[in-house]
């Protein structure tokens, strides 16, 4: 338990610094930003109580917002992500439920499961994020386009990170 907390704390720091110092400087085509930090919420263990997920999401979001001076934007989107995660997990739950001690990643759950899981959550988060950021629906399609493109780049990064952590043969 304590070891898990330390491990996730470490992941938190690494993701926040990567996001704040490197990825925030990337602006493909002027308005496409990858937001890799959402990976933290995606990777939380299945057993994490939902309310802890929400609190953690709040902390993560406010930290990222501190870097970009956009207080509230990432916070609200990340809380929404944590909220949606509970229901997405329920929707794609394998028969027999989640095994105790497993984590939502490619290693334990397989590629197909993880693709559905990450695509749906990352898109929900980015969709929410970009609409909160623009705070209006008047440019619906351009905002939607930004959300889609940024989601794509975030997902690419997420899969790259996952491949680095993938140890073949340990467990499917």
């Amino acid at each position: 338990m304590i070891r898990d907390v330390i491990k996730y704390f470490f992941i938190f720091i690494v993701l926040v610094l990567t996001q704040g110092l490197i990825l925030n400087n990337i602006e493909l085509g002027g308005y496409i930003n990858p937001y890799l930090y959402v990976l933290f919420i995606l990777l939380l263990p299945f057993e994490t109580p939902p309310w802890i997920t929400l609190i953690v999401a709040f902390l993560l979001g406010i930290t990222i917002d501190t870097f970009t001076s956009t207080l509230g934007v990432h916070t609200s989107a990340t809380i929404f992500l944590a909220f949606a995660r509970k229901y997405v997990l329920k929707l794609i739950e394998p028969r027999g439920g989640y095994e105790f001690g497993t984590e939502p990643n490619i290693q334990y759950m397989g590629l197909n499961w993880f693709i559905i899981y990450s695509i749906s959550l990352v898109f929900l988060h980015h969709f929410f994020l970009f609409f909160v950021e623009s705070f209006k629906f008047s440019q619906f399609f351009s905002t939607l386009g930004r959300a889609l493109l940024s989601s794509f780049f975030t997902l690419v990064l997420i899969f790259i990170v996952q491949l680095f952590n993938y140890k073949p043969g340990v467990r499917k």
């Binding site: 309310w51 929400l54 709040f58 207080l71 509230g72 916070t75 609200s76 909220f83 909160v132």
Partner: peptide, 19 residues
């Protein structure tokens, strides 16, 4: 769970507006 979510969102949005 839903109430906590709503509470936190309210906090986040109030931060957003205030900010």
């Amino acid at each position: 769970f839903i109430f906590l979510f709503l509470l936190l969102e309210v906090v986040a949005f109030s931060l957003l507006v205030q900010n």
